[in-house]
Simulated scan of single mutants.
Amino acid sequence: MSGGRLSTRLSRLLNMVPYFLANPGISAQEAAAELGVSTKQLMSDLNQLWMCGLPGYGPGDLIDLSFSEESIEVTFSAGIDRPLRLTSIEATALLVALRSIADLPGMVDPTAAHAAMAKIEAAIPGNRPADAPAPGAPVEAPAVAAVRHALAAGHALRLVYYSASRDAVSERVVDPIRIVLVDNNSYLQAWCRQAEGARLFRLDRIQEATELDEPARPPHHATDEAAALDLFSDDPSVPLARLLIRPDYGWVLEQYPMHRMSVRPDGSVEATMRFATLDWMARLLLGFGAGVTVLGPAELVTAVRERSRAALAAYENLEVA
């Protein structure tokens, strides 16, 4: 499970105990609708939550729940309903985590995050006094604020978006689903009406966002958390590069959206990768040097070969000069 999916689920689990304490006896269907998950996912979360609690992990330490699809009730909260007293080390760790999240566009309301940080800092012995003015929260980009507001209101969005892979700016209407964290970047997961598919839009590449006065209606299958977090959808209309990756360049497979196809006896890996423009892909592959060899398509092989020759010729001219 990716870090983005884990953090999303952890946040949901932490909110479930106070939610069900405030809504005793609520049905699984009602709770799932309010929490924005499927009934199946909710029941899976409840089974997970049932095994959580305080160190010791005995009957008096674990969260206890009485749940079925008809009714859910917390019978023992394991202290989650009580204010938490943090040690200095715990408070510092929480501050670091809050700062890292607050620095990511769209993940949280920056004003609320910085207010929480100010309260935690004031509670740490020897730190800033509680009545001292808190540093101002950074101003949130208008586009990011519009995305968060539309998501909360359940409205569609019109985006002006810069695609790095295509090196182009496009305008499209999307139905927001959620904001996710992938590889330390925050993305809007949404149903793109133009592409007719679930897509992720990196928030710092959204140049403009306009909330529309119409409800967001992503297809039901697009809202499934497990199915829709693929950052680079396998769109058959986008060209496919076939690559041979040397054994000592295995890190490339982790850093780029490649699909492993087979492993050769010498340990090299055959993989594929979708790309939008020939020039962009050729530049990327040249940066890998001899670590990655292009197997196809023919036009990409030609582009890489021609760029390599041009680069060698430029070096030769420098040596002569």
Rank of each mutant, 00 (worst) to 15 (best):
D204R: 01
A226I: 15
E211W: 00
A228M: 11
C192W: 00
D204M: 08
G197S: 13
R217T: 15
Y187Q: 05
A195F: 07
F232Y: 14
S237V: 10
R193T: 05
A216K: 06
A190S: 05
D213C: 04
A198H: 00
E225D: 12
A190D: 02
T223P: 07
D234L: 13
A226V: 15
E211Q: 13
R199C: 06
E208L: 12
D204H: 06
V238I: 15
H221W: 11
S233C: 06
E208M: 10
C192V: 04
A228I: 11
N184F: 08
F232V: 14
P236D: 06
D235E: 14
T223G: 07
E214F: 03
F201I: 15
N185Y: 08
P218C: 04
E225S: 09
A226Q: 12
P236H: 03
Y187M: 11
E214M: 13
P219C: 03
A209Q: 09
G197D: 15
Q189E: 15
F232E: 07
R205D: 00
T223D: 04
S237C: 05
A198P: 00
L203W: 10
N185G: 02
P218L: 05
R202H: 02
A195N: 10
C192M: 07
T210C: 06
I206L: 09
D224W: 02
A216C: 08
P219N: 03
A222M: 13
F201E: 06
P219S: 02
D234G: 01
H221L: 11
A227Y: 06
P218S: 03
A190E: 02
S233A: 12
Y187L: 12
T223E: 11
R217A: 13
L231H: 06
Q207H: 10
E208F: 05
T223W: 01
N185H: 14
W191T: 09
P236S: 02
F201S: 07
L188Q: 04
R199F: 06
T223H: 01
E196A: 08
T210P: 03
T210A: 08
P236K: 06
A209D: 05
I206F: 00
L229V: 15
H221V: 13
E208I: 07
L231Y: 08
A222R: 05
C192R: 04
L229T: 14
A209P: 08
S233R: 14
S233N: 05
Y187D: 01
D230I: 15
A227P: 08
A190R: 00
E214Y: 03
V238Y: 01
R199M: 12
S237L: 13
Y187S: 02
E225G: 02
Y187N: 03
P215A: 14
A228H: 09
S186G: 00
D234T: 10
R205W: 07
P236E: 07
A209K: 04
R205S: 02
S233M: 10
A222D: 14
A222F: 10
S186M: 09
R199Q: 10
Q189D: 08
L200F: 01
I206Y: 00
G197R: 12
E211H: 00
R193V: 02
F232D: 07
T210S: 07
A195C: 09
D234N: 08
D183W: 01
F232C: 06
R193I: 05
I206S: 00
